Each structure stands twice: as C-alpha cells, then as structure tokens.
Simulated assay, not measured.
Amino acid sequence: MSTTFGGRAASVRFDRVTKAFGDFVAVDSVSFEVDAGSLATLLGPSGCGKTTTLRMIAGLELSTAGRIWIGEHDVTGLPATRRDVSMVFQSYALFPHMTVMENVAYGFTVSGTPKAEARERAEQGLALVGLKGFGARLPSELSGGQQQRVAVARALVLEPEVLLFDEPLSNLDAKLRRRVREEIRDIQRSLGLTVVYVTHDQEEALAVSDKVIVMRNAAIAQEGTPRELYEQPADRFVADFIGDANLVEAEIRSVDGDLARVSIGGVEVRVPGRGLPVGRVLAAIRPEAVLLEGQGGGGLAGTVRKAAYLGKHLEYTVDSPVGELFVIDRRIDDPRPAGAGVAIRFGDRIALVPDAD
C-alpha cells in the first residue's frame, strides 16, 4: 500500500468544447490545456461558464460538442464515476453525522477497501492538511477553515489524476482565505498534483495559479501566467477584470524598439509598446502607478475626492483631466485630505491595450 499521495497527475485538454442547456449556450467552443502537475484557474464573473467547464472535467455535465481528454484518455462521454477525478465543493459537502475520520475515509468505505487500510489512508490525509488528531470530531466541532481542510483531505486520499476546486474559499473570511489558499498551493506543489480551480476572486487566482484562464460570455477571453495577464491584458475586459486598473484614453506618439512614447493627457511616459502602432490606444494604469505630489509639481492637475486609510496604504479617488483615478499610496505618513489639490504623474505599471473604443 502506498504511503504517499500524488504521482498520477494527468493533463486536461479541451478541444472546441460546447455545452448548451436547450437554447442557452453556457460554454461556447472552448479549447485549452492544463499541464500535468500544474494548477490552472478558471476565472471570470458570474455566469461566464467557468463552473460548467469545471463540471464537464468532472463528468457531472457532459459536453454538447467537442472532445475532452484527461491524460491520453478521451473521457468526453464518460460519467463522473468512470473518471479519475476528485472535486472539492464550495459547501464542503461533509456528512454531518460522520466523524472527520469517517468523512475522509468515505471513498474507501464505499469501494470496499479494508477498514484498517481506509483508516490508515485517512490518517495520512488528515496529517497532510494539518489535522492530525482531529479524526474523532464531528464537522460541527470544526471551524470553517478546518472543515475545508477535511474536504481537501477526503479528495486527496483518493489520489486522483485531477483535483478540482469549485470556489473553495468563498465561505471563509479574508484572513483565513489567504492562509488556506497558501496551504492548497503548497500541497499541490509538494505532491505534483494537477489542479483546476474555479474562482471569481482575481487576487486569489493570481496568488495560486501557474496558468489563469479568463472567461467571459461562455468563451475564453485570455489565458496565460498571472504576470502575463496583469501586465499584458488582451483587451479592455481583461485589463479591468484582472486587478484594479484605471482605463484611460492615451496616444502612442512614437515607437522605439519594444518601448512606446505615450501621452496620457499630455503627460508622457515610456512603456512596453506591445507591437501597437502610433495612434490612439487604451492605457490600463494600475493604482500604484498613479503618483500624487503637491500642487505645482508638474504633471496633471487633480483634486482628491475621497481618501481612505487602510493600515498598510492609503486609497484615493482623484478627479483628473483624464477621468476619475483610483490610487494606492504606500506613504501613510503623508495623507492628503479630500478636497486637496494634487499633481499627478505616472509610474511604469501601465499596460497598453489594443482597443480604445
């Protein structure tokens, strides 16, 4: 009997997969690949098709068209019971009348695995998620974060080729979400698991993923590494959805190699040109790239409309000639009150986006 988990990770591949419910198309000709041993996140707003896509990997929904592969196996028509996949649900889906140990061992119990082996595997799973010694408790005696770990352990012990997470942290508070997502990522890396993860939380997706697949209106808007999506968004939607961005009209004045000389309201910056030609463009300016100084300091003249102290930084809403700007300022000892006049400059966290319309 194996005493470790992992080692059977498989890739996932969608080839022009469509899922329709009557006349409603939930997923429209989607193609992507998740490498074995990597973590990919399906990210997008509610109703974009990400959860339906995840359920098609699991076999909980069967595709209307296209092909799905797990490893070298075409699983398009196979039900969930014939796919080597485990899923961790948003609601945890623990049996309230069973102990933690019984919940984790449930998959072995229903498959007829000897009790001693099932218990040993469950104990190994609980130890892996930091819950050694919790086996005799009921789920109601655990915190939300601990219940989520039990759900993860129950999925892990089955050693699936692919492990799926459906909004796993949405029921946790912000501080606990950060800790549990780090634990999930650590387990995934240490065991070399293939994980497909669904969330609508951009920060969560950027923090845990090798690849992020952004979905919009049942299709893929863009896929890439977190850095690629943040720094090189394909269009207005991705720029606005991945992290906070101030989207303002700008003009490329000239291009020199990989850099473009860009005018934003008359203030010039040099940023990666992304192969775009001279002319009108959209600039996605990250909040930390808006630099505020006292009046008379050059740049654009603006006025602070709102100011908020958030401990590690200050957040401002600033009226400017190029529109309302959201600003994050780490200089907490130099606050600027609402109504204060400021000079606005721009740093280098600016991404040019092809569509300015």
Rank of each mutant, 00 (worst) to 15 (best):
V195A: 09
R8A: 09
V318G: 08
V162W: 03
G265S: 12
R82E: 15
R280L: 15
G44S: 10
A155H: 01
T113E: 12
A136C: 09
D23I: 02
V208Q: 00
A239Q: 03
A9W: 04
L54H: 06
A234W: 00
R349L: 15
G66D: 10
V34Q: 01
G22K: 01
A221N: 09
S46W: 02
V100R: 04
G266E: 11
R189Q: 11
S111A: 15
S38I: 01
V88H: 05
Q148E: 00
H97F: 10
S86R: 02
V267P: 09
V30Q: 05
A80Y: 08
Y197G: 04
G347P: 07
V208I: 13
L247D: 01
L42V: 13
A351F: 02
T18D: 03
G323I: 05
I57Y: 06
V157S: 04
P337V: 13
L314P: 11
L42P: 12
A155Q: 01
E249Q: 11
A40D: 09
V152A: 11
L128E: 13
V278W: 03
A308E: 15
V25L: 06
F326I: 14
Y309H: 13
A174E: 01
E102Y: 04
L158K: 15
R137N: 11
A40M: 03
E183M: 02
S2F: 10
Y92R: 00
A338K: 09
R119I: 08
T199R: 00
G297A: 14
I332A: 05
A283V: 12
A127W: 02
A289F: 09
E223V: 04
A9M: 07
G299C: 09
D173A: 08
D244N: 12
R13S: 13
F346P: 13
N171I: 06
L163V: 07
D319H: 12
M87G: 08
T99V: 13
A10H: 13
S11G: 14
A118G: 13
A283G: 12
L292K: 07
S46P: 14
A356Y: 14
E228S: 13
R137W: 01
S143A: 09
E159M: 04
V129D: 06
L193D: 05
K132H: 13
R331D: 12
